[in-house]
């Protein structure tokens, strides 16, 4: 009699699936690291330092408070700037959405601001203000404000009219309407706006610190450039990348929790 029980193939095992996913997450980074390490064997250390050297510097930054405080300062500047731009953007976005005059005045102004390069804002800030922290906050807000405002206006305008009418049919107070309808409706786009602006802000803050600060990742990068220290430059850059990845992960966890009501296709 022939045994008809299908044999278990290795890729039917769930552990194999997890391993395969991990492999594909790690593969591009392993590829880049390998290429770098090979290059480090053929080029001088100030061009392509060994990864062992780079990771030693990364460890050094993470475990030395005077260095790690620079990373924290940059992180706080990014979050502070984003929070400021978000609050201001929300106010302006609501005004543009609610009042035609505000729309006519603010939309072209913000579009004009969007065209100004980040470096120009850095120069303006240095000329206009004295305090380093205020300069950086101003630059962060000025560069991310238009995007936040337009993303909030877009979210408000794309709110489902039928759902809004349903909530209005119960004659809610303004506060109730905002908490029951507006806030949950715009939240997904607000989170997306934070994710997009986080990347922009991390780039701008480095430029701002590079030119107008005596601390932070940008300032440290300037020091490495003056010393021609590629390992240091890479190590400080990785700190910023780690921070962005960490905050993106926090936002993703928030998304998973806050938007669990969404239907998930079984096809993924």
């Amino acid at each position: 009699m022939t045994d008809v029980t299908p044999s278990r193939r290795p890729y039917d095992n769930p552990a194999f699936g997890v391993a395969r996913r991990l492999f594909w997450v790690a593969a591009p980074f392993v590829l880049i690291a390998t290429a770098w390490q090979i290059a480090s064997a053929f080029f001088p250390d100030f061009l392509f330092p060994s990864l062992i050297h780079v990771f030693a510097r990364v460890f050094d930054i993470l475990t030395t408070w005077s260095l790690f405080s620079s990373v924290l300062a940059t992180a706080m500047r990014i979050l502070g700037g984003l929070a400021g731009a978000f609050v201001l953007g929300a106010v302006l976005g609501l005004a543009i959405f609610s009042f035609k005059t505000a729309d006519r005045l603010l939309t072209p102004t913000l579009t004009f601001f969007q065209g100004i390069p980040a470096l120009s804002w850095v120069v303006f800030a240095i000329i206009w203000f004295h305090g380093v922290e205020f300069r950086i906050l101003f630059i962060m807000v000025a560069t991310t404000l238009p995007a936040f405002t337009f993303q909030i206006v877009g979210a408000l305008r794309s709110m489902d009219k039928d759902l809004s009418e349903m909530v209005m049919s119960f004659r809610p107070s303004r506060r109730k309407y905002f908490s029951a309808m507006v806030l949950p409706a715009v939240l997904p786009e607000v989170v997306t706006a934070w994710k997009v602006n986080l990347g922009n802000a991390s780039r701008v803050v480095v430029v701002a610190e590079l030119v107008g600060s005596s601390g932070g990742v940008g300032f440290q990068l300037l020091q490495q450039q003056q010393l021609f220290d590629m390992a240091g430059a890479l190590a400080w850059t990785l700190q910023l990348v780690f921070f962005v990845l960490l905050f993106q992960w926090v936002l993703s966890q928030f998304e998973r929790m806050a938007f669990r009501y969404r239907a998930v296709s079984e096809r993924g």
């Binding site: 039928d162 759902l163 349903m166 309808m181 949950p184 938007f259 009501y261 969404r262």
Partner: peptide
């Protein structure tokens, strides 16, 4: 209403 208009969240 004609459609249920339930708040998805």
């Amino acid at each position: 209403f004609q459609t249920d208009r339930l708040l998805p969240w």
